[in-house]
Design a protein around this nucleic acid. Structure first.
Lengths: 180, 180
DNA sequence: CAAGATTGAACCGTCAATCTTG
DNA sequence: CAAGATTGACGGTTCAATCTTG
C-alpha cells in the first residue's frame, strides 16, 4: 500500500458527493444495461459492437489494430484476443499492410457488415429508449458539455471522438451509420 | 442472432449522437482512470473499494451479502468471489446471522477499516481532480439531475443510492466518511 | 532499438447448478 | 419450496514477455 500523497485531504462538498454518487450509479448501471441488451439481442458484448461499428465507419472498412484499439477504448492485447475470436466467426480478417508491414490491418467482411446492419437499429433504439427518452430541455447539450469537460480533464490532449471518424452532419438512413 | 424488433428504426439526431459519443467516451475512460488510480495507489480494484467503502459506512461495519451486492452494483456471485479474496487478506469476515441464519453478514475488520482510512483521502482527491475540478457553474447539479433521469429510465423503481445508506448532510471529517 | 502487434498464463466475472435455511 | 448465498467451470481481460519490422 502506497502511503497517501502529502497533499491535505480535499473532501467533497455535500452537493458534489450527491452528484458523484449518481454518476457512479450511472457508470455501474448503464454499461451493464447496454451489455445485457446486446448480449440478448445479438450475442455479442458492447466492446465487440464498438469494434465492428468503428470498422464499418472507416475508409474501406479497414483500420490498423492500433487505431482500432484507440477507437474502441481498449488495450492492444484485449483487441488482439477479441479480433481473433471475431475472425473465427468470419466477421473480420487481418493482414499486414503491404508496403509497411508493421501495421496489421483489420477489415470488416461482408458477413460482419451484414451482421452489424441487422443489429444496429435495435441497439440505437435501445440507446434512445434508455438515455435520450429520459432527457429534457437542453439536457442533451449539457450532458455533452459536461462529459467533454471531464474527458479533457482526464487527458488534456484528448481527442474524443478521435479525428477522422466523426460522422456528424449526414442524413440518417437505413444503413448502420449511427451504431453508437 | 435475434431479428430486429418490428418498431421502425429510431435514429439519433446529430445533437444526440454527439452527446452519445461523448457519454460513451466517459463510460470507457472514467472507470478505467479510477481503476488505474486505485490499483497503483492501493493495489485494489474499484469494485473492491466500493465494497469496503460501503461496509465502512454501515451500522456496525456489517451488511448482508445481498444488501452489499446491491450497494456495490454487483451480482451475488461476483460479490462472493471478491469477499472470499478480501477475507483471505484479513479485511473482511463473514458469519451467518444469529437468529436468521439465511443471511450472511459481511463485516469490515479493523485492518480493513485502517486500510480504507489510508486509501480514501487519496482516492477522493483523485475524484476531485479528475471530475469536479473540471466542472463549472451549475454543472455539478445538472450532472446529478441528468444522471438521475437516466437511472430512473433504466429502472423506474430505482433507488440509487439505496436507502438507509445515504450520508448526506454530515460534517466532512478526517475519517473516511466520503470514500466516493 | 523503437513501434506495432501478439502470446500465454494468471486473474477475474459470469452463468447455471447446488446447497442451506425458514 | 422460495430466499439467500455459494460453487465450479468457462470465457474474457490483464500483464509481462516476446516477436517482427523499419
Amino acid at each position: 500500500v502506497v502511503p497517501a500523497d502529502d497533499e491535505p485531504p480535499r473532501w467533497l462538498t455535500p452537493a458534489e458527493e450527491q452528484s458523484w454518487v449518481s454518476l457512479v450509479g450511472l457508470l455501474l448501471k448503464l454499461p451493464a444495461a447496454l451489455e445485457t441488451d446486446l448480449r440478448r439481442r445479438a450475442g455479442i458484448s458492447y466492446f465487440e459492437y464498438l469494434v465492428i461499428s468503428a470498422l464499418s465507419e472507416s475508409e474501406g472498412r479497414s483500420l490498423s489494430m492500433g487505431h482500432l484499439a484507440t477507437l474502441a477504448g481498449s488495450t492492444p492485447s484485449r483487441l488482439t484476443h477479441t479480433v481473433e475470436r471475431m475472425e473465427a466467426r468470419g466477421w473480420i480478417t487481418r493482414r499486414r499492410t503491404p508496403g509497411n508491414a508493421r501495421f496489421t490491418l483489420a477489415h470488416l467482411t461482408d458477413e460482419g457488415f451484414a451482421f452489424l446492419a441487422e443489429t444496429a437499429p435495435g441497439h440505437v433504439a435501445t440507446v434512445r429508449r434508455l438515455v435520450f427518452d429520459a432527457l429534457q430541455g437542453d439536457d442533451v447539450e449539457r450532458l455533452e458539455l459536461i462529459a467533454q469537460r471531464i474527458l479533457t480533464q482526464l487527458d488534456p490532449h484528448h481527442d474524443w471522438p478521435p479525428r477522422g471518424t466523426r460522422h456528424g452532419s449526414r442524413d440518417p438512413g437505413p444503413t448502420p451509420d449511427q451504431p453508437g
